[in-house]
């Protein structure tokens, strides 16, 4: 009968309309600012810097090698190397700025970092009334503890920690092997010991 399909469609929408009031399965909306879903583990937004231990300044894994600065396609990273009073490089960034209004979340910086110092964050609420200063993140904004990294990406962080521990153990073993025929070890391994939370 002509018109039966229309009635069928009307019945379907009426079911939706009534159902959305009493059937929670029909209303998948999560009212965001009050209630929020946990970010999926593989979510990524903008990079952050991982630090070990308690001090965000001294614990930074970053050694200011500037590989990420050079590789960054939109060139949103700006690094200045720390030098002591005699001009000797300190393997530590004095300035590490990241412009999130430019960043395109490509994760290339993470992939090229040889020190596992930069990782992708899941924080996405960057709205600010100041679109120039407010979106330019400095070293203090970027530095987040390894504990936080474990919170947002547990699998990836555990892998990283395991690898770092293995590398350190290898380096120590090598150092010991070298130290035996010669003098006692003069300096410890370059990378600080990773602290598992």
């Amino acid at each position: 009968m002509f018109g039966a399909g229309l009635l069928k469609g009307l019945a379907e929408t009426a079911r939706n309309f009534v159902g959305s009031y009493h059937d929670p399965a029909r209303l998948p909306t999560v009212e965001y600012p009050e209630r929020r879903l946990a970010s999926p583990e593989n979510a990524r937004v903008f990079p952050f810097l991982v630090y070990d231990g308690a001090d965000p300044e001294r614990g930074l894994r970053c050694v200011a090698c500037k590989i990420c600065e050079k590789e960054c396609p939109p060139q949103c990273i700006y690094i200045v190397l720390e030098r002591d009073e005699r001009g000797k490089p300190q393997k530590h960034p004095r300035v590490f700025d990241l412009d999130v209004s430019v960043c395109m979340s490509c994760q290339i910086c993470v992939e090229v970092c040889p020190f596992d110092a930069i990782r992708m964050d899941t924080a996405f609420e960057w709205s600010t009334p100041d679109r120039f200063g407010g979106l330019l993140l400095h070293k203090t904004d970027l530095a987040k503890p390894n504990r936080y990294y474990h919170q947002i990406h547990p699998t990836e962080a555990a892998e990283t920690d395991a690898r770092l521990a293995a590398e350190q153990a290898k380096a120590e073993a090598k150092a010991q092997a070298q130290a035996k025929p010669k003098a006692p070890p003069s300096q410890p391994a370059a990378t600080p010991a990773s602290a598992t939370p």
């Binding site: 939706n16 309309f17 959305s20 009031y21 209303l27 909306t29 009212e31």
Partner: peptide
Amino acid sequence: KGLARIQNRLGPN
């Protein structure tokens, strides 16, 4: 509101 409920949304609130 009505269209939202028909589409299983909440509508303006």
